[in-house]
Each structure stands twice: as structure tokens, then as C-alpha cells.
Design a binder for these strands. Structure first.
Lengths: 191, 191
DNA sequence: CGTTGGCTTGAGAGGGCTCAAGGCCAGTGG
DNA sequence: CCACTGGCCTTGAGCCCTCTCAAGCCAACG
């Protein structure tokens, strides 16, 4: 499944065919079952994950014991706790598969070596992070502009297949509202 | 003032002394007065800004005519509307000086040329964006965890000098609350 | 020394939460 | 293939956090 990753590299930078195998050797592929954890809260954050197929989510458990989802990652997205990954410290988050997911992962040391060996990948990651950061700027604007109700409608209209794919509970948590309230919102529109 | 920028580069990557002058030639330095706009809403987003001294803010005007601040940038931070900058399109945001500020700026084309000429800067920006993105992940967690009131206390305890430096109105907008409510929160703690 | 912008106060309203219960599947074991 | 069970979604009542609107106040600035 690493070929999907190389394909993704090529959307942003040129990659020599002869380098492919060596690049891939830095990564490990794996499949995770629904609800399986890739990173456990309060443990060292070793890996950076690229989703080939499926869907991951990042969440934490708050003081009331509730899971708070702060991010999803679907096909062609990278995910990790970047603060903990960069510093190689304990993470405040848990990363779990929402559905059966194919993933390519790399540990911190290997990523550093990969970037030293193939400096053109610095550009790839620079562009990936730039895009991710740009997305959060827009999201921040929405958080100011929209009520929770508008957030839900905006989200489900922007990503209709995705809204149907994840359990409502997780979506509610991602949108920072209770499942009860989400239910109420959906009901309103129905009538 | 560009030497401050080079100094910042050196926190992340090595820079040959002989390259300094050429690097600097890609940038333009400028000083902006309090409330002066660096980028105007609904115009093309040409520049990427590095704050040498002072403080900038990014905001937009909502349908009620209110300014909604979504980001501040102080010394050693980069700022722009990354979505609009990358695509060189019209921006939904305005960037303005909160106080008299010294800024180094670069337009999109020059930045591309700079990165082509000095590919090691890809690493610099990769690290900058990674750090910025990591910060937004943490911020997202706080948005789930904290009430507006807790957000204010957390912010003013984390950045005490900054909280005193910007007008309360802007801080309230950044924390996504009304100035009236911020006032009430502060009063509560006083008593 | 008058105006203006920013901070404060207070009353009333509403968005969104909590808690508790009820209903609807989907998966599991017999 | 059917009954059972557990998870998830829905409903409703009551409440609190935060907003809106409308004054009043204070300090800065011309």
C-alpha cells in the first residue's frame, strides 16, 4: 500500500522511479481494525501516520470521562500529535481507527533520516503542513461565524458522504456539541 | 531589520554568512503604524509577513459589521491568509497592525524563487508550519475543554504581558466572546 | 474642556447543556 | 432463524452560560 504514498508525493514533488523502493523502506504498512488504537493517551508519540484507506480519529478523554474528538483523518491525510511527535514526548491524545483502515507509518528517527536522505521531501511536507494550517485558519473563521447548528449544516453539506460515514456521536464530539443537541438539530430540519 | 529574520532562520537551519545578503534581497522591510492595514479584505493576498517587532492581527468583518479577530502575530511569527496566499486569490481576511510594527515581507513569486535558490529554507518553513499546526491542535483541545471564561484565564495566565498589551476588545473577539462578557469575567475574579 | 472610543453594568433572552428515560436496530448465541 | 442484549440515537424538562441591547462612566486626545 506504500505505492499510494509515493503517488501522493508525486502530487507535490517529482520522485525518481529508482528512489521509490528506498523511500518505502523507511515506512511500515499496517491495517487497523475498527476501534483499534494506533496511539494511546499518555504514552510516547512515536509515529506519524498516513491514511491510505479508511478513517482515523484523534481524541482525548476529559475529566468527566467523555471522549472529545478533535480531528479526523481520511484517505491521503497525515495525522499525529505534532507537538508530542516533534519533541518525542508523551501525548495528550489517542488515535483510533473509526473503521477498518490501511495506514502507512513512520517513526520520528526514521522520518529525520528520510528527510536527510531525500531533502526534496522537506518541500513535500512543507506543502502538506501549509495546506493543513490553511485549513485550520478557515476552520477558525467558521468557529467565529457559525453557531453549532450552522457548523453541522455546513459540515454535512461540505462533506455529505463523510457525515453519513461516521457515527453521529463522534461527529457531535468533533463539532463540540452533545449528541442530544445534534439529534435536535437534525429533527428540526426534517420537519 | 532583516538580520532578525536571518537570526530566526538560524534557530532552525544553518545559513552561510555569504548567503545572507542574497537571501535578504528577496524581502522588503517596512514599518506599519497602529491600525494600518497590511492586507485588505477582498483583495489579492500577495504577501507573507514576518513580524520583527510589534503585533499584527488578522480579522474579518462579519455580516453584522463586527470585526472578528482570528489570529495575532507577535515577534518572530509569520502570518498571512495561507489559503489565499498559496492560490494567489482574494482573501477573506484583513491584516492590521495592533501597534506600531516592524515587518519583513515577501510576495508569493519571490518566495517561490527564494525556495528554489535556497532549498534548505524548505526545511525552515516545514518546521515553522509544523510548529504552527501543532499549536492549533492544542488550541483545538482547549476549545473543547474550556468554557469561554476558562479560555480567558488560561490565556491571560499563559501570556500575561500579551493580555495586557492588546485592547480588551480585540482579546474578547479573539476568544470568541463579547467585550461585555469579558468585562463580567474580569469583575468576577476581582471580587 | 468637550467629544469620542473603550470599558463596565444590568436586565432579559436564547442557544446549547445535563440528566433521565424510551425506542430502535445490529450483532450474538442458542 | 429467532430472541436477547447492548449500543446508539431520540425526546423532553429544566437550567446555565453567554449574548443582545441600552445606559453610564472614564480616560485620552484635539
Amino acid at each position: 500500500m506504500s505505492e499510494k504514498l509515493i503517488k501522493h508525493f508525486r502530487k507535490y514533488i517529482p520522485v525518481d522511479a529508482e528512489d521509490e523502493a528506498e523511500m518505502i523502506s523507511f515506512f511500515r504498512s499496517g491495517t487497523f481494525a475498527k476501534k483499534e488504537s494506533l496511539v494511546v493517551q499518555n504514552t510516547k508519540c512515536r509515529y506519524h501516520f498516513f491514511v491510505v484507506k479508511g478513517c482515523l480519529r484523534m481524541f482525548y478523554i476529559d475529566e468527566k470521562g467523555m471522549e472529545q474528538t478533535i480531528q479526523f483523518a481520511i484517505e491521503n491525510w497525515w495525522i499525529t500529535d505534532y507537538l508530542a511527535f516533534e519533541k518525542q514526548t508523551v501525548t495528550a491524545f489517542e488515535i483510533q481507527a473509526v473503521e477498518k483502515s490501511d495506514v502507512v507509518q513512520i517513526d520520528y528517527g526514521s522520518q529525520e533520516k528520510l528527510l536527510a536522505r531525500f531533502p526534496q521531501l522537506e518541500r513535500y511536507f512543507r506543502l502538506i503542513y501549509q495546506r493543513a494550517y490553511a485549513a485550520t485558519q478557515l476552520r477558525t473563521k467558521y468557529l467565529h461565524d457559525f453557531s453549532r447548528e450552522q457548523m453541522y449544516h455546513h459540515f454535512s453539506e461540505s462533506f455529505p458522504e463523510f457525515a453519513g460515514r461516521v457515527p453521529q456521536q463522534l461527529l457531535a464530539s468533533y463539532l463540540n456539541m452533545t449528541p442530544e443537541y445534534l439529534s435536535e438539530i437534525k429533527k428540526k430540519r426534517r420537519s
